[in-house]
Design a protein around this nucleic acid. Structure first.
Lengths: 111, 111
DNA sequence: TCAGCAATTGCGAACATTCGCAATTGAAGT
DNA sequence: ACTTCAATTGCGAATGTTCGCAATTGCTGA
């Protein structure tokens, strides 16, 4: 399997708000499903499905503790990826902002 | 719009092999569509659509030069994000590999 | 044993993405 | 003006994703 396909697959797995929130929350500390549920505010069934996706990808691990299930980030440096994403986002946004400014300025010049 | 939604959106946009390849290729140098087409090996119409996605997101920019259109990476540090993705991927894969080894070892022990 | 809570799974309907064909735009050569 | 090549856009069919309901599993406490 080519590397670029694996990358695309990874990004696709990250491409959902709930899954992003889960990863961000687990970055602080391991958490039982109950807490994730309360923090995110989504149907249990939906959360379970998103957790299953993350589990299958190996990004998080689950372990039962009594009747609750506690999720943790597995090994990899997810934080670094999220950080890079935030950085790129701000760069893209300021880029668009600059472009907009230029357009507005050109607009006023022609008047 | 919450930040985690923007991040998810960004990842979703990156979640396709062709778009990843385009970004990787543009990282080397700006390129006309023709070259991308030859390098990736996909229908022109499909490539155009993926390029449109990247354009709308502000990650790449296009400029006409005669009858050809040349694409370039726009400002943001896409490279950093792709690098982080590759790092995480290798970490995830070695993680799974270790897990597999443990399972196999446990298996042989019980025999 | 059984009632009850936590979390998950199976499944179907709604929704979004992707792909290729046909048609279109823009620029270059004749 | 007309043909040709490069790239894009408009669709529709096929495919994939997401969501909630109903049913299930695993565990705990009566």
């Amino acid at each position: 399997m080519p590397l670029y396909e694996a990358k695309a697959e990874l990004f696709r797995l990250l491409g959902h708000p709930v899954r992003i929130r889960v990863l961000e929350l687990l970055q602080e500390r391991p958490m039982p499903v109950r807490d994730l549920l309360a923090a995110i505010g989504v149907e249990p069934t939906g959360l379970s499905q998103h957790l299953a996706v993350l589990r299958r990808s190996g990004m998080v691990t689950a372990q039962r503790d009594g009747s609750t299930v506690v999720y943790s980030l597995a090994g990899g440096d997810v934080a670094e990826l999220l950080r890079a994403a935030r950085q790129l986002l701000t760069q893209l946004l300021t880029g668009q902002h600059e472009l907009l400014s230029e357009l507005l300025q050109a607009e006023t010049k022609t008047r």
